[in-house]
Design a binder for these strands. Structure first.
Lengths: 231, 231
DNA sequence: GAACACACCTTACATCGTATGGTACATTCG
DNA sequence: CGAATGTACCATACGATGTAAGGTGTGTTC
């Protein structure tokens, strides 16, 4: 790894891109809150203010980080099977956001070329599959909201390093007062979440399937309405 | 309005609750980023450090803010019609998060009694409707992820004060380079989003309907499987 | 009238983003 | 060849932030 500051006399000049990549690595490791211009500079082997030679400010770095993350997401493949394409795209997005949890809220609050490109591709996939403009808007909103929302929930789960949710749930459920106050939650914890083999990530496949099946139904209904209108 | 600092000689003592309520109001007005202990104290007519007599720190205030917001959300009514109950609950949650956009990411990163209570009620509603534990877990994850994700997207849309998205879209679409680079997006903007009467909030109803219909299908399939197993 | 709790304050520190104004070295140009 | 220009960096400083440490004054209670 060459991410830590090498000998300063031989170091290649910092660029906007290397700064952004270092910032992503830092946020991945320590979280977005502890990403500061000073720490980032130290990581790059320079002083904080030297960063301002390469970027216009911290916002510029955050924008760059979003671009990096969105670029990691696979665009929906175009082809006959729109459901498979969107499913794979959703899985890819979720995996990427799982690797970069800090990016979730960042993504939605910044408009970058990468994001526009991604949206464009999704709309293209839907339009090719026969979705009307309005239905495509509905579909993209639904799917994106779900993916981002799931990533948000998943990111803030108290998972231990093995992705296991059990420890934290056990801790909560160890409190008898809470068990009594929230019986349904307790039942779900002991009878389902604490069972061996449970992983919250698996809920995602169910959600995507329900949504895509629902969209397929809506598409068929829309087509029927449209063809009736044509008679 | 009595939120600004009144005459200090007659002011009622600050409490944890009044501090939290003032913090919510401040975050609603100026955003979460500009909520600082000093500004909050000024709003309350005291000095920053005096807040520490009532709360243990800023985290304590953030926890309190989440409780306030979650408490504003209607719990799903129990009764025969689980779909209507969950739909109304979802609409309520979305409306609340629309009023307090800063709460979205805060909610998912903190475990409060109010949140546990809400989850418990949703599970109860599903279980009463005949959902198995596993299917209820699926359903709650799906619905919650969607609602939070939608709120997140809606919160970060560049809406003007009338809730209109047109201005920002027009600004982007005014750039010919982007129009050419993202044709599907452009088409959606000019042919759909910029049309009079379009409001992004309306996408929510569609999403909730698709999800609830999908859950109903899954419930029926689950019941069929279970009864086959009983034969 | 002494002890005490309550509600507040002052000062101070490390850390944050960044405005301002340098410095050392490389390349280009007259 | 010397001067000008541009590149990549640095030092200092300012006003914010959260909060630790240690007062101050005004009740209320024995």
């Amino acid at each position: 790894m060459a991410t830590t500051a090498p000998n300063e006399s031989t170091r290649a000049p910092v660029t906007r891109e290397s700064a952004v990549r270092a910032a992503v690595a830092l946020a991945d490791r320590d979280g977005l809150d502890s990403l500061s211009m000073r720490k980032l500079a130290r990581e790059l082997g320079i002083e904080a203010m030297s960063l301002y030679y390469h970027v216009t400010g911290k916002d510029d770095i955050l924008d760059g980080m979003v671009e990096v993350v969105v670029a990691e997401m696979a665009l929906p493949a175009d082809g006959a099977n729109w459901k498979a394409a969107l499913r794979d795209g959703a899985e890819s997005a979720r995996a990427v956001l799982g690797r970069h949890p800090w990016a979730i809220s960042l993504m939605d609050s910044r408009t970058t070329r990468a994001t526009l490109n991604h949206h464009n591709a999704v709309i293209g996939c839907l339009r090719n599959a026969g979705f009307s403009i309005g239905l495509a808007a509905h579909a993209m909103s639904l799917l994106d909201s779900y993916v981002h929302g799931f990533a948000l929930q998943e990111a803030s789960l108290p998972l231990d390093e093995s992705g296991d949710i059990g420890a934290a749930t056990e801790e909560i459920m160890g409190r008898q007062d809470l068990m009594a106050e929230f019986p349904h939650l307790s039942e779900m914890a002991v009878a389902h979440i604490l069972q061996p083999g449970y992983a919250y990530g698996n809920e995602f496949r169910f959600g995507v399937r329900v949504i895509l099946d629902g969209l397929e139904t809506a598409l068929a209904a829309d087509a029927a309405t449209a063809s009736r209108g044509r008679l």
